[in-house]
Each structure stands twice: as structure tokens, then as C-alpha cells.
Amino acid sequence: MTTFPVRGRSSSQTPLQPAPSGFLPTTRHGLRHVEHVMGMPVMFDICDLDVGISALRDATEWLHWVDATFSTYRSGSEISRLNRGELTAADLHPEVTAVLARCAQLRSETDGFFDVEAPYRPGGRGPQAGRGGPESVEPSGLVKGWAVAGVVRILRDAGAVNFMVNASGDIYAAGHPDGAPAWRVGIQHPRMASEVALTLGLRDGAIATSGTQARGQHIADPFSDRSPSGLLSVTITGPDIATADAYATAAVAMGAQRAAGWCARLEGYEAALICEDDSVLTTPGLAELRI
């Protein structure tokens, strides 16, 4: 039976908190797993009875391969070696080439606001130790979503139909959980503890949220170099989790005014923008997903 490799502090001195009552059960029979990779928990919730643990193993191995290959925190990753000039474009793994190509596409789709080189900023928090200089490639903003998209493919290839993968707040939901016609996914309320602002029903779709809470240093307007304003969070939903994540990141960088116009023109993706004046702007298509 399952054992839990518990280490660390006991929290018995922490006062007991009532649990939020809002989380629904998803399955009584499936596989559930949390994999820690890229510094974040990736939660698997697989409802299909006939999906074996080997699918989960393949998926987690893929995630760790992506981490080892793309991480700018790892000196031996292809991205780190590329940034040090040890690799040229011709040496790169096809997945790396594909990610960098998609980054370039996304930069164009987002009017330049999704920028793989943008994190390096003289006035910002600066590159992390081990990262490269101002000319470096930093595709991390896409890699997480790309990694989860790969997980979705692996699980589907293994026959999974009903499952959810939650990578630290960015979610792909396939099919439906036991006893419900769709996955009910809440969008985090940007101001209130343990509340959601909207609830969407998802079937075979992705949802990603980027926020600006304490996040000014993290997402910056690549043109003005300043923190964007007017938005508390942007949520994007659509078929591909990597695209949704990148769009959400870009929209936050745009600030409210520009993001609103840009989101309104998206094709195949829907958006919810939560603004600092406590208004919620949604694309008309998002309404169809609300439950």
C-alpha cells in the first residue's frame, strides 16, 4: 500500500483550519500522483481504470527529461550550453528546436509581448545564478506548458480519456471526472483567500492563469521595461496548454488596456481578465464555458 515519505517539520503546533468545502471528488478508482519537477508540483488525476502505472511513469520521465534539457538552472542543459556558446542551432535536440521555433511564433502572435529574451533586464531582478547574459535564450515561459502538453500526449497514447493534469495552477482537463459531465475548474479569486472568481466546465481543454500579485518583477512589459498595470490576473482557455500559458503571460505583460483588445481578437482561445478596479472582462465565448 501507499506509504508517504514524510520528512520535515511536524505542524502539530499549527492551529487547525477548517478546510474549504469546495473541492469535489474526482474519482474513486483512478491513479493520483504528484510529481515534483521544475520546482513545482505536477498533479495527475487519472480516472480511467484501464490506464496502467507505466503511463504515469512515462509521463514523469518525460517531465524530468524536459527539465534536464531546458532548465536554465542546470549548467548541463542544452539551453545553458547554447547560451554559453557550446552548442549551435544544428546541435540541438529536435524538441529544443521546436520549442525555440514556437517561442518565436508566439512572440509574433502576441505582438512581441511573449518574449523569450525578455526576462533579462538590467533594472529588474536580474538573471538567476547560472543563467546567461542579456543575449541569452530563456524559453522557460513556454517550457512548462510544452512539458504538460507532452504529458497529455503520452497519457492519450496510453489510452487515457478522462484525466486532469494540474501543473502548479495551469491545467489540462480531458474528458470528465467520475459522476460529472465536465471538469469544474475555478479561476482563482485574485483578492480573497480560498475563493474562486469564475467557474468553468472543461472537457478536453487547457486553462492557464497568470497573475500580477507581487509579480511585477516577474512579468514585465518587454518594451517599456516596466511592470504592467491594471490587471490582477489573466486566464486563457483553449486547446493547447502551452499556448494558453504563453498567451496568459503575454496578456499580463500587456497591461489591461492592451490585453483587453488583444484577447478580444484571439481565435480558438477564450480569456477572462480580472482588473484592478475589480471588474471582470470576458470574451463572449468564455460565457459558454461557465457553469
Binding site: 472568481a197 467557474t199 497568470s210 500579485q213 470574451t283 468564455l286
Partner: peptide, 22 residues
């Protein structure tokens, strides 16, 4: 073209929550 409404906390029952990375 966007729909606008006031931000409010919903009563909620969900399978998961999408939010900023942790």
C-alpha cells in the same frame, strides 16, 4: 467586444483551481 461584470467571490464546488504558479 468584451463582457464586463463585477468581480465577486462565488460559492464554489470545483475539481481544481487555476491560478498563479506556486
Amino acid at each position: 467586444t468584451l463582457w464586463k461584470e463585477a468581480l465577486k467571490a462565488q460559492g464554489w464546488d470545483v475539481h481544481s483551481v487555476s491560478g498563479a504558479s506556486f
